[in-house]
Simulated assay, not measured.
Amino acid sequence: MISSLLYVPGNAPRFLEKAGQRGADAVIVDLEDAVPEAAKTEARDGLARWVPAIKKAGGRVFVRVNHSERLIEDAIAATQAGADGLYVPKVCSPDVLDRLAKSLENHEKDRSPIAFVPLIEDMQGLFEVRSIAKGPRVMALACGGEDLATAMDAKPTPEVLRYPKLMIHYAAKEAGVLSLGLLRTIADFADKEALRAAVLEARDFGFDGASCIHPSVVPILNEGFAPSPQEVAWALKVVAANEREATAGRGAFMLDGKFIDAPIVTRAENLIRKSQKGRAS
């Protein structure tokens, strides 16, 4: 269960030192947009120090690599540093992931294969998203909202981003991988009430978690994507009632004035599993 992922610039020691203490389920060490060109090599070299240091706090560590000629070297450095996964920007086809996986095989002798999170950030990637979702090592899909809006020559408003983000979300669900994101940009985090509403909306749609660029957002993501005690209590009640009704030969029944049948029971069971995973993590 990954509810919250915190982006941290890969060239900012004062942020990296505290990244693992912010309460996020995962930290994304960013080598791409947050790092100027002149500092990218130094930031990559710093992975050997920062990835293990952040992991000691108990969370996962991902690295957002560059999509340019730096891609392979960034990915190798992240793999050797022990990162759990790569955020791969501007993925436009599964071929990119195939080449990346093959490039990393010789550097994974003493570890399990590193996972991929493709970022869909342009039109080609958007219309290839179903095949990308089924590509090698994909554990989740995410959308780079600002980049996608720029590719459309549009503003990154919730209205503009809603449909393409849902396309990416549906592709993730079809492929059985995590769907990470909100139905809006993550760049605007000042209005916390609007952000809370966006998190609850995303959860209602079935998103699994989201990333953020400021630590003040982490608790909002953790709380919003986690099942509430009231929801867990209702789910337990539904599952228990279903067991009783099944014994009596009934597959559908009324519970506290609400109609219950197989899809509702399945949702209740899924919610219970999600709450148990959250406690375990």
Rank of each mutant, 00 (worst) to 15 (best):
V8T: 09
F15A: 11
A19V: 02
A19T: 08
G20A: 10
G20K: 04
G20S: 05
G20E: 06
Q21N: 12
R22T: 15
R22C: 15
A26K: 09
V27E: 06
I28S: 05
I28R: 04
D33H: 15
V35P: 11
D45A: 15
L47C: 06
W50E: 01
A53N: 03
I54K: 03
I54R: 00
A57N: 10
G59Y: 01
R60P: 00
V65K: 01
H67A: 15
S68P: 07
G82K: 06
A83G: 03
Y87C: 13
P89Y: 07
K90F: 06
K90Q: 09
V91I: 03
P94R: 00
L100Q: 03
S103V: 08
N106V: 12
K109D: 11
S112F: 02
P113I: 07
A115G: 02
P118N: 01
Q124W: 09
G125I: 08
E128R: 12
K134Y: 01
R137M: 03
L141E: 04
C143R: 12
E146Q: 15
D147M: 09
L148N: 06
D153E: 14
T157Y: 09
Y163S: 13
I168S: 00
H169D: 05
Y170W: 12
A171P: 00
A175H: 03
S179V: 08
G181K: 00
L182Q: 02
D188V: 09
F189Y: 14
A190R: 10
A194H: 10
R196H: 13
V199A: 02
F205C: 03
F205N: 00
F205P: 00
G209E: 05
A210C: 13
S216L: 12
V218R: 07
A226M: 10
P227D: 01
Q230K: 13
Q230V: 13
A233Q: 07
A235F: 01
L236V: 06
A241R: 11
T247G: 10
G251D: 04
A252L: 05
G257F: 00
K258E: 10
F259W: 02
I260Y: 04
A262Q: 06
P263E: 06
T266L: 10
T266H: 05
R267V: 00
R267S: 02
A268H: 01
A268G: 07
E269T: 06
I272N: 08
K274I: 06
Q276P: 08
Q276R: 15
Q276T: 08
A280G: 10
